[in-house]
Computed example of a mutant assay.
Amino acid sequence: MTIESRIRARSEAILKSWQTLNWASVFSAIIYPALGAVVLLSALVLGLALDGLTLRWWYAPIGVAAMGLSIFLCNMGIGPLHRIWQHRAGEIKWPGQVIVMFNCILAMQGSLKDWVNYHSQHHRFADQAGDPHNPNESKFWAWIGWIMWRDENDLARPMPMWLKENKVVLFGDRYHISLSLVLHFLVPGVIYAIVALSGGSLILTAIIHASVVIGRGIQFHATTLGVNVFGHMKTPLWFDYLLAFLTGGEALHDHHHEFPKSALHLPKKGFFNRLVDYNGTALLVMKRLGWAKNLQIAPQFA
């Protein structure tokens, strides 16, 4: 009997109740995106209902642009986190590391230590008992159940050996709660105050803020669904590319377990490939800037 065959399914082994919910994960996955939607709807309703508030047509494209930028920046954290810090497909120098760290905070990825440890287990037990988000156990579990109910033994695992000397990773992990509070609450609060004191449009500010929050929520769920669920299923090509646009190429998952140590998820050549796999494109740009080196690329993508 193999070790894997003796391991219980994670969705069955972990106690699931209201008392054991990981509320930080619930807030990140459900409550915060819902608050963004409430703020956006409230801004639109108040702008239409009250004469003292002005709602312009061009606020809509600004909101869409803010949402797209939020999705892009979140992917600029998760992409290098996954490909470089997780799978060691190359090296990023400190300016790039700082950008990646803050984008991971924006994406609400929680502890980098836990992120890497969970993903290591996923590759060790992919689609078997022991996989933290095995879609064969439950699609809901693979989507968000595994982050809503956590095993304390998982959270107790130490920082992976290859990251123990990375000062930026250690700083981001040690202060990720404080940095999250500053980035997601203090900074928006200061912006609202500046706009109010300067006589600017609070409606436009609320629309931009809500769009950023909603964009982060879209990217969050596109990643967990696109990688953990649909990435392990046979899906139409158009759907694969839709998820790829929302995840910077992370949802292009068919090849990933065969060659995980690749900085690119699509061939290096081709404008469309570089547009869809923009997490990989960002790493190529970092290399040009001297911020990344020793990038490894799967043979089929070189």
Score class of each variant (00 low, 15 high):
218 I>K: 00
116 V>P: 01
190 V>T: 03
134 N>S: 12
155 L>S: 13
211 S>M: 10
117 N>P: 06
136 N>S: 11
206 A>P: 00
114 D>Q: 15
190 V>K: 02
212 V>Q: 07
213 V>M: 08
137 E>K: 01
218 I>Q: 05
197 L>C: 10
195 V>Q: 03
207 I>M: 14
115 W>K: 06
140 F>W: 14
222 A>S: 13
120 S>Y: 11
126 A>Y: 02
223 T>G: 08
124 R>E: 12
167 K>L: 07
122 H>A: 09
166 N>D: 15
188 P>M: 08
123 H>N: 09
195 V>Y: 07
190 V>I: 15
160 P>Y: 11
137 E>H: 02
215 G>K: 00
153 N>S: 10
175 Y>S: 00
151 D>G: 03
156 A>H: 06
153 N>P: 01
189 G>Q: 06
210 A>H: 03
207 I>F: 01
174 R>I: 04
165 E>I: 14
167 K>D: 08
180 S>I: 06
141 W>Y: 08
211 S>G: 02
112 L>S: 02
120 S>L: 14
137 E>Q: 14
193 A>R: 14
158 P>G: 08
168 V>D: 04
122 H>V: 01
152 E>P: 07
167 K>Y: 09
160 P>W: 06
141 W>T: 05
146 W>D: 07
148 M>S: 10
160 P>D: 10
165 E>R: 13
157 R>C: 09
195 V>M: 12
190 V>G: 09
208 I>F: 12
169 V>Q: 00
200 G>M: 09
175 Y>L: 04
173 D>S: 09
117 N>Y: 06
122 H>L: 12
210 A>W: 03
123 H>D: 02
200 G>C: 02
178 S>F: 13
173 D>E: 12
199 G>S: 09
207 I>G: 05
157 R>Q: 11
163 L>E: 00
118 Y>W: 15
114 D>H: 15
184 H>V: 07
115 W>M: 12
220 F>E: 00
118 Y>N: 04
113 K>I: 14
193 A>I: 12
158 P>N: 11
165 E>A: 14
139 K>T: 12
175 Y>V: 01
126 A>T: 04
129 A>F: 08
197 L>W: 15
158 P>I: 05
166 N>L: 02
